[in-house]
Design a protein around this nucleic acid. Structure first.
Length: 758
DNA sequence: CCAATTCCTG
DNA sequence: CAGGAATTGG
C-alpha cells in the first residue's frame, strides 16, 4: 500500500486517531455503505469528515435507502396493534386502569383512521380520568374535547365504525398474503370474528355498499386530519428534542439510561417501519390503498409519505413521545421519551415548566384530533349500515394510512410531490436530528423483502440487509456526466469539485474504486488545460484511493471493452497512465494541484524519473513533484521509493552479471553484457519502471544500466564480491551518472512520452 | 541529531 | 513497496 505512510504521516489532521476514531465507533454510520461495497478495505478508513451529512444525504441519493433505514423491525408478539378484539372488552378496564398498552394505542393511532379513532377514543376514555387528568389537572381538556359523558357514546360510535371497517376490509379482500406469524395470528382471529359477523348480520351487504362511498370520503378526511395531528406531534417532538439536547449534556449518569431509551426509540422506529410495511403490503386489499380512493391531488398520500420520510429521518423520537407518556402517566410522572432518562424533566428548574408546556401542547393537539375523529365517525355512522355485526375486524391494519405511508420506495407512483410545507417540515426534521442518524437501524430490510414477504417478527441482524447493495448503483452516471472529449484517461473530477459533499466524496471514491474501470469519466470541461488526472487526496481525512492502482489492472482488461467505444471519443491508452500514447510531450497525467499524499501516479512518475536519476536529491524531488505538498514523511517516502528503485535495479544488475559470469562470459563487451532493448534485462527493467510501456526508455538509462551491469560483472568476475562493501564502489560510479531530467517532469502529473505509440 | 542510504524482511 | 534496523555523513 502506497498510502500507509500517508495515513500515518504527520499532518496535523491525519493523525491515526483522527483517521480511525470514527471508524471504530460502534455505531458506524457508514456501515450502510460499507457492507455493500464488499467491505472494501479502504472503506472503513473513511474518517467521515462530516458524518451527519451521511444520513442526511444518503436518503436523498438513495431514496430506497431512506425507507430502508428503519430496518430490523421487531414485532412484539401479542402486541398486535389490531388485536382490537381485546381492545373492545378491555375498554372498561382501561377506564379503570388508565393505561392500555401504550404501544398498542400508539400504533392504533397511526395505522388506520378507524383504528386511530378507536385508539383516540380509548385514549380519551382512559385518559379522561387518568392521563389527561395528569396532563391537565385543571381540566383544560374540557375546553377542547367533548365532555366525558359524550365519550361513552363516541366510543360506541367508533366501535361500530370499526366493525364496519372490518366488514369493509373483508369485502374488499382478505389480507395480503400474510406470511408473518403475527399477521397470521391476527388473521385467524380476524376470520373467526368475521365468521361470527357474517352469521350475525345475514344479508346486510347491500346496505354496506350504499354507504361505502361516503365512508371512503370520510376516511380520506380522517386521514388528512390524522396527518395533521401527526405533524403537530412531530412539532412537539421537535421541541422535546431541543430540550433533550440541552439536558443530555447535563449529566453522565443519564447516559446509560438514555442509551437504553435510545434503544427503545429505535424499537419504536422499527415498529413504525413495520407499520409502513404492513400498509404497503396490504395495499391491494385495502380500500385506502386503491388509487381510486386517493384524492386527486393525493395530498394524503404525499403527506403521509412525507411523514414517512420524517419519521425515517428521526425514527427514534418519533414514537417515544406517545409511548412513554403513557407509561409514566401511570406513575404520575410524565416523561417524554427522547433518549433521555425517565424523570429527566423532573429535575429542578425549567424541566417541569417544559413538561407542563409540553403537556398542554400535546394534550391539546391530541384532543383536537380526537374530537375531530370522533365527530367524523359520528357522522359517518349515520350512513353506516346498522346491520353490521358488532365485531371488530383487524385488517384495518392494512387500511387507512396504508397507501399514504407507503415507503419512499413506492413513491414513484406518487402522483405529486410533497407540498412546500411538507418539504419544509421535512427539512426541519432533518436539521433537528442529524446527530442521531447514525443510530438508525440498519436499512435495507424493506427492500430486502418483496411486498408481502415474510419479514419475520424479529430484528434482522444489522449488516444483513440485502437491500443495501443496490445503493451505489445510481449515483455514478448521474454524478459524473460523461465528457467524451477528454483525450485523457478517466479523469478524476478536479477543479471545482463536482461533489462537494463528503458523502459524495466517499461514495464516489467507492464508485471509482469499484467501477471506475468500467465507466468513462471525463471531466475535461472543468479542467484546466494542463492538469490531467487529479489525484489530490480529499484532504488529509481522505486517504487517497488507489485509483490508478485499482484502475490499471481492470483497465487493461475490462477497460478494453469500452475502449472501443470510448477511444473513438478521444480516449487513448489502455489503463491508468499506461495507456498514454499521446503525441505531445506536454501531455501529462497526474495531480493537478498540491496534495499531501503520494498517489500511484506519483509513483509512476518517480519510476520514470528513475530513468534519468538514480539518486535524486530532496530538492530534485521537490522540483519535479510540484503537485505534492512535501513534508518530512512524503519526502522520505519518495526517497524511499528511489531507494527501492535502486535496490531493484542493482539486484537485477548483479543477477545478470552473475549469470554472465556463470555463462562464461569473459569480455565485458560481449553481447551478453549488452543491454539491448530486446534483452531480457531490458524487458525486466522496463517492466518494472515503465510497466505500461507508455514511455520510451531513454538511451542514457540503457547506457547507465549497461555500465552498472559491467561493473558488477567485473567485480564478480574478479572476486571482489567477497568484500562486504564491494557494491559501494559501483554505487559511487552509478550515482555520478545521473542525467538531467526532462523539463516535462517538472509539470505536475505524469509525463507522457511523445514518440511512443503502443 | 537528522537525513540519507543500505540491508533485510514481509 | 513499506517497515525497520543499522550505518554513515554532515
Amino acid at each position: 500500500m502506497y498510502f500507509r505512510r500517508n495515513l500515518r504521516s504527520g499532518g496535523a489532521m491525519d493523525s491515526p486517531s483522527d483517521l480511525f476514531c470514527q471508524q471504530s465507533s460502534p455505531m458506524c454510520p457508514f456501515g450502510l455503505y460499507r457492507s455493500p461495497s464488499g467491505s472494501a478495505p479502504s472503506a472503513p478508513r473513511y474518517p467521515g469528515g462530516s458524518p451527519p451529512a451521511y444520513p442526511l444525504v444518503s436518503p436523498l441519493l438513495h431514496p430506497s435507502s431512506a425507507s430502508q433505514s428503519w430496518g430490523g423491525y421487531r414485532q412484539r408478539p401479542g402486541l398486535g396493534p389490531f388485536q382490537a378484539p381485546s381492545l373492545e372488552p378491555e375498554l372498561e378496564e382501561e377506564e379503570e386502569d388508565g393505561v392500555e398498552d401504550p404501544e398498542q394505542e400508539d400504533e392504533l393511532l397511526v395505522r388506520d383512521p378507524a383504528a386511530a379513532a378507536a385508539a383516540a377514543v380509548a385514549a380519551a376514555t382512559m385518559v379522561g380520568p387518568t392521563l389527561l387528568s395528569h396532563l391537565f389537572p385543571g381540566g383544560m381538556r374540557r375546553g377542547v374535547v367533548t365532555e366525558p359523558e359524550e365519550w361513552g357514546q363516541d366510543v360506541l360510535h367508533v366501535k361500530r365504525l370499526r366493525m364496519v371497517d372490518g366488514s369493509l376490509g373483508k369485502r374488499d379482500g382478505e389480507e395480503a398474503q400474510g406470511g408473518e406469524e403475527e399477521k397470521r395470528g391476527r388473521k385467524t382471529d380476524t376470520q373467526t370474528r368475521k365468521d361470527e359477523e357474517d352469521d350475525g348480520r345475514g344479508g346486510g351487504q347491500e346496505q354496506r355498499k350504499e354507504s361505502r362511498e361516503g365512508r371512503k370520503r370520510q376516511r380520506q378526511e380522517l386521514k388528512l386530519q390524522l396527518q395533521e395531528t401527526r405533524e403537530k406531534l412531530l412539532e412537539l417532538q421537535k421541541k422535546v428534542w431541543k430540550a433533550c439536547d440541552k439536558q443530555q449534556t447535563q449529566g453522565d449518569q443519564r447516559k446509560d439510561r438514555g442509551k437504553s431509551d435510545g434503544e427503545k426509540g429505535r424499537m419504536e422506529a422499527e415498529e413504525m417501519e413495520e407499520m409502513f410495511l404492513d400498509e404497503g403490503e396490504g395495499g391491494d386489499h385495502d380500500v385506502f390503498n386503491n388509487e381510486e380512493f386517493l384524492p386527486p391531488d393525493s395530498s394524503s398520500k404525499t403527506s403521509q409519505q412525507n411523514v414517512s420520510g420524517m419519521d425515517d429521518l428521526s425514527p427514534d423520537e418519533t414514537m417515544d413521545l406517545d409511548v412513554d407518556l403513557d407509561q409514566d402517566a401511570e406513575r404520575g410522572s410524565l416523561w417524554v421519551g427522547c433518549g433521555v432518562a425517565h424523570g429527566e424533566w423532573e429535575g429542578p428548574g425549567g424541566g417541569q415548566k417544559f413538561a407542563q408546556a409540553l403537556k398542554q401542547e400535546l394534550g391539546s393537539a391530541v384532543a383536537r384530533v380526537i374530537d375531530r375523529v370522533i365527530r367524523l365517525y359520528a357522522d359517518a355512522e349515520n350512513t353506516a349500515p346498522p346491520g353490521s355485526a358488532a365485531l371488530v375486524v383487524h385488517n384495518q391494519r392494512n387500511g387507512g394510512l396504508g397507501p399514504a405511508l407507503a415507503t419512499i420506495e413506492n413513491d414513484q407512483r406518487r402522483p405529486s410531490g410533497p407540498t412546500l410545507t411538507q418539504a419544509l417540515e421535512q427539512a426541519e426534521a432533518l436539521s433537528l436530528v442529524p446527530s442521531r442518524q447514525p443510530e438508525k437501524r440498519n436499512p435495507g430490510l424493506h427492500s430486502g423483502f418483496p411486498p408481502g414477504a415474510h419479514r419475520g417478527g424479529r430484528p434482522l441482524p444489522p449488516q444483513s440487509s440485502p437491500g443495501v447493495p443496490h445503493l451505489p448503483q445510481p449515483p455514478l452516471p448521474a454524478l459524473l456526466p460523461p465528457r467524451a472529449k477528454d483525450p485523457f484517461l478517466p479523469a478524476f473530477p478536479s477543479g471545482p469539485p463536482a461533489v462537494p459533499l463528503p458523502l459524495l466524496h466517499y461514495t464516489m471514491q467507492h464508485l471509482f474504486a469499484r467501477s471506475l474501470s468500467n465507466l468513462p469519466l471525463h471531466h475535461k470541461d472543468s479542467l484546466p488545460p494542463e492538469p490531467f488526472l487529479d489525484f489530490r487526496s480529499h484532504g488529509p481525512s481522505f486517504p487517497p484511493l488507489p485509483l490508478l492502482g485499482q484502475l490499471e489492472p481492470p483497465l487493461s482488461s475490462s477497460g478494453r471493452g469500452r475502449d472501443g467505444a470510448i477511444r473513438d471519443g478521444g480516449i487513448r491508452g489502455g489503463g491508468g497512465l499506461g495507456g498514454l500514447d499521446g503525441g505531445d510531450a506536454s501531455l501529462y497525467l497526474g495531480a493537478a494541484s498540491s496534495q499531501e499524499g503520494l498517489s500511484p501516479c506519483h509513483l509512476k512518475k518517480a519510476k520514470l524519473m528513475f530513468f534519468y536519476t538514480r539518486y535524486p536529491s530532496s530538492n530534485t524531488l521537490k522540483t519535479y513533484f510540484p503537485d505534492v505538498k512535501f513534508n518530512r514523511c512524503v519526502t522520505s517516502q519518495l526517497i524511499k521509493w528511489f531507494s527501492n528503485f535502486r535496490e531493484f535495479f542493482y539486484i537485477q544488475m548483479e543477477r545478470f552479471a552473475r549469470q554472465a559470469v556463470r555463462d562464461g562470459v569473459i569480455a565485458p563487451r560481449e553481447g551478453a553484457l549488452r543491454l539491448g532493448r530486446n534483452s531480457e534485462l531490458f524487458r525486466i527493467l522496463n517492466m518494472h519502471y515503465n510497466k505500461s510501456n507508455d514511455y520510451q526508455v531513454p538511451e542514457r538509462f540503457l547506457e547507465v544500466a549497461e555500465l552498472a551491469l559491467r561493473e558488477f560483472f567485473i567485480a564478480i568476475q574478479s572476486g571482489r564480491d567477497t568484500d562486504p562493501c564491494w557494491k559501494k564502489s559501483i554505487y559511487k560510479i552509478i550515482c555520478k551518472l545521473d542525467s538531467p531530467i526532462p523539463d516535462s517532469f517538472r509539470l505536475p502529473g505524469c509525463p507522457v512520452d511523445t514518440h511512443r505509440s503502443v
